[in-house]
């Protein structure tokens, strides 16, 4: 196989897998910020919580990786409902700055709390046998776990797309993102809608956290370490836009991977170059409201 083609496939495949992780973890943040204008810097903390629940379930109870992922996402989704109702709701009308202070405070607390319970050593989980090794597609092999990430991402995107575009709830969410006051005045209960999307978003973040164990490793500092990355995906995609977040995740994932593969000397430069380039041309991101 020609060298350039091989490079291209490598970048595309690894970038795609990375992009799926970015999408799954960031989409909740995007909707939160789009729907309520709420700056949730504790989003990474929900992801981290998901990751640690997976670790506990898999290692203490010997539950398989996949069921553990599901349990962790659901649990974090449910817990996040209480957070939203009790804490976040008081701050919807506050300024961005107060929201920043609140959520960064929560992130700090979560870091210390998880350090207390889990210690600072990075955690890992045993993967099921069928996720290890690599799959042979004839012309070359690909790591199974990454293929799994791509498939899982594709399935989730299909589900989210269906819910967003084809169902009543999806229509309401889109309406509320576009014009919240108008949506309320036609009788949509935006608060309840938001609770729901917040729970789903946090649950997905938790799923992302679980997936990240194998991808990036998991320590308590995860809560803030990758926050900028998630914010970049949200900003580049446009707040509250599903397809924007997806496109941004793809662009960031593939450009970052390509940059690392072809020009490792420039490090993480490419992520920021692409961010600046996109935002200078489209300040509201790919599909954000101007």
């Amino acid at each position: 196989m020609p060298h350039a083609l091989n490079d291209f496939i490598s970048v595309l495949f690894d970038g795609l897998a990375y992009a799926m992780f970015l999408f799954i973890t960031s989409v909740g943040l995007s909707v939160t910020m789009g729907l309520m204008g709420f700056v949730n810097l504790a989003h990474g903390a929900f992801a981290m919580a998901g990751g640690f629940i997976v670790v506990s379930l898999a290692r203490t109870y010997g539950i398989d990786f996949i069921p553990a992922l599901v349990i962790a996402s659901v649990t974090v989704g449910l817990i996040s409902v209480r957070f939203e109702q009790r804490l976040y709701r008081r701050f919807y009308k506050s300024t961005d700055l107060e929201q920043v202070l609140l959520t960064i405070g929560l992130a700090f607390m979560s870091i210390a709390a998880f350090t207390y319970f889990y210690g600072p050593i990075p955690k890992s989980v045993p993967l099921p046998h069928w996720l290890q090794g690599d799959v042979n597609l004839g012309f070359r092999t690909f790591p199974t776990y990454r293929a799994f990430l791509i498939v899982l991402g594709a399935v989730l995107i299909a589900i989210l797309w269906f819910v967003f575009e084809k169902t009543n709830i999806g229509a309401k969410i889109r309406a509320a993102v576009d014009n919240r006051r108008m949506a309320e005045s036609v009788g949509i209960n935006v608060d309840r809608l938001f609770t729901l999307t917040f729970a789903v978003g946090s649950g997905l973040a938790a799923l992302g956290g679980g997936l990240a164990i194998q991808l990036l490793g998991l320590t308590p500092s995860f809560a803030l370490l990758y926050l900028v990355l998630f914010l970049i995906v949200v900003a580049v995609g446009g707040m509250g836009s599903l397809k924007g977040t997806l496109l941004a995740a793809l662009v960031i994932g593939i450009v970052d991977t390509g940059g690392k593969y072809l020009f490792p000397v420039a490090g993480t430069f490419f992520i920021y170059v692409i961010t600046v380039a996109v935002l200078l041309v489209k300040p509201a991101g790919f599909f954000g409201r101007e």
């Binding site: 202070l101 405070g105 700090f108 210390a112 207390y116």
Partner: peptide, 20 residues
């Protein structure tokens, strides 16, 4: 030395709750 961040976080949360 290990868990001080909890206190800082708590300060921020309490401050934003009580001292808008």
């Amino acid at each position: 030395p290990t868990f001080w961040q909890f206190g800082i976080g708590l300060l921020l949360v309490v401050a934003v709750l009580f001292a808008r």
